[in-house]
Amino acid sequence: MKLKEVMNTLEAKIYTGEELLEREISFGCASDMISDILALAKPGSLLLTGIIAPQIIRIAKILDLSGIVIVRGKEPMEETIAKAKEERVPLLGTKFLLFDACGKLYEKGLRGT
């Protein structure tokens, strides 16, 4: 699944990473706890999370994640957007709840493992 399709499926807005919409997403991962993400996310995963702090961009870099979707309509902090731009990590936002967002992507064929 391409990042563009993720964006459409989740009716998401994009904060940064427009130039990376053709990127291929290999896996999905969802959690609000950083250590769980560190333990579970595979390289190349798209992360769905409620964490809006800039720390999440660092996690994306450390784990080589392919992008981040902030759920529940939360707005990422400005610092987070700036950091995402700087580190070239696609950052999206959706109004859907974590559960529903995962379900929609799963339906389209994206898997966790």
């Binding site: 950083i34 250590s35 769980d36 333990a39 999370t49 720390q55």
Partner: peptide
């Protein structure tokens, strides 16, 4: 609240 403290460190 920032996503830390999962007890997985």
């Amino acid at each position: 609240e920032l996503g830390f403290g999962a007890g997985m460190g």
